[in-house]
Each structure stands twice: as structure tokens, then as C-alpha cells.
Design a binder for these strands. Structure first.
Lengths: 120, 120
DNA sequence: CTCGTCGTTCACTTCCCTTTCACAGCGGCT
DNA sequence: AGCCGCTGTGAAAGGGAAGTGAACGACGAG
């Protein structure tokens, strides 16, 4: 269910390859530049891929301390991470928001249908 | 008749899998996005699957307070939940109405007959 | 010193959730 | 038929949660 064994040195999520030792992310083989926080956040999500992770848990996993009330850094970094992932792999939604619960990492096509540019 | 032990971490109703800790619902393995209220309502129904649960009890279980007379929020959320479940698993009726008594969760094929494409 | 990156926080916007209202449909009862 | 209670359903309103751009200070490289 997880992406890999907990202490593996490699996590694979869809077209993403996370090399833990090196702190390196590959998207379809192409390297993606992430900051330390961004990388830690991605790892925290990837280790629980398919499951919803609360902000509390995310913060504890990626930052190593407890989330204080009103702290939005989690959201900000999810945004940064999304931007980089979307740039690396447009059309694939990786991070899904579950309002009131948290975030979930899971590769899925962005907006398959419902597009229809029947123009107007 | 229940879906599982009361304090299990997982409830299974037909093709539905409810992950209590995460607040996540899976329909045939596919994640379904629910709001907090919708999820709590589903859990309340699922914990009593097969039995009729009164609005009073449903409200107390899902909202945590007592239902005031004239409050329709219960009905409204049953409707929302039905919509999402039907979208996730068309052709399966999960929530059944028992007029004057309450609602009952129980997976069943919806309207096996009643073919009706008499056109028009 | 100067520049650029990073992490954090703030302010503002946008979207979603919840509640409530209003009306329609359906039985049952008189 | 007409009345009435119960449920289904769409939509408006308000509040709260998440998205987003930018400022600020810290830090390391050059």
C-alpha cells in the first residue's frame, strides 16, 4: 500500500522516483530541484501515499516538531511542491486536498473530462 | 450485521471501505472525497449497517449534539452523501429511507427492473 | 559586501462547507 | 378532493479553510 518499505532508499510514486540518500527527485527520469523542506514534505507524503495525512502529522514528519495553531507553513509548502510537480509533470495531479482532514499523495490525471472547449 | 468491530480502524460495507483514522472513503479502491460532516454521517450509518437509525440518533452520532425540532440538516446531508455514493458506485443503493423511522445503510442493487427506455 | 536562495510569516483572495430556507412530491387520512 | 405530515432537492448566505503572492530576515557563496 505504501510506496515502498519504510527504510528503503528509493520511493516510487507514479512517474516520480525519490532517492532518499541523495535527496533527489526524478520525474520521468528528469531531475527536479527541490529545497530541503520541499523534499522532506514530499517524502512524508510519499511514505503514506494513498492515505490522507493530517497537517499535524505532516508537520511532525517533515519539520520534526509540533505544529502550532495558526501556522500555515504546511499549506505554503504544499503549494510550492505542487507548483514544481506540475511543472515537471503537467496534467498529473499528485497532491489532493481533503478539506478538514489533510493531504493525500496519489498520482491521477488532472481534469480528464468536463473540459470540452465547445468554445462558445 | 455490523460492519466490523465497534472500535475497528476500518469499516467495510459492500464495496465501501471506510478508514476511520484518516477520514478516507474508498469505493472499490477508488478514493471518494467527503466533507467532515458527510464522513461522520457515513460512519454513524456504517456502525449500524443493516439497522434503521433515527434522525435523532444520527444527529447525535455525527454532529455530537441533540437534534432540534425542524432541523433538516440530517436530510440534506443524507442527500449529499447519496449523491456522492451514487456517483462513485452507480447502480448500488446504499442509504434507504424508512418513513417515520429513519435511515438504514445497506448495499443493494437499485431498481433491478423498471427498464424503461420506452424512449422519450 | 552583494547577490541569490531558503524558510517563515503576513495579507488578501478564492473556494468549499455548513446551515437554513423554500418549494415540490408523495402518501395517508378525513 | 382537500389537508397535512414527512422527505427530496435546489439554492442562498455566512463563515471558515485552503490557495496564493509577496515581504522580511537569515544564511552561504562568490
Amino acid at each position: 500500500m505504501q510506496a515502498q518499505t519504510t527504510n528503503a532508499e528509493l520511493l516510487s510514486i507514479g512517474a516520480l522516483e525519490i532517492r532518499l540518500r541523495e535527496g533527489l527527485l526524478l520525474a520521468e527520469g528528469r531531475p527536479v530541484t527541490l529545497s530541503v523542506r520541499e523534499f522532506d514534505l514530499l517524502v512524508a507524503l510519499a511514505r503514506n501515499a494513498g492515505s490522507i495525512v493530517s497537517r499535524q502529522d505532516l508537520y511532525r514528519l517533515a519539520w520534526g516538531r509540533t505544529l502550532r495553531g495558526g501556522d500555515r507553513s504546511c499549506d505554503v509548502y504544499v503549494h510550492k511542491l505542487r507548483a514544481k510537480l506540475d511543472e515537471a509533470l503537467p496534467g498529473v495531479a499528485f497532491i489532493h486536498t481533503h478539506v478538514g482532514f489533510g493531504y493525500r499523495l496519489d498520482p491521477a490525471p488532472s481534469h480528464p473530462f468536463h473540459n470540452a472547449d465547445t468554445a462558445r
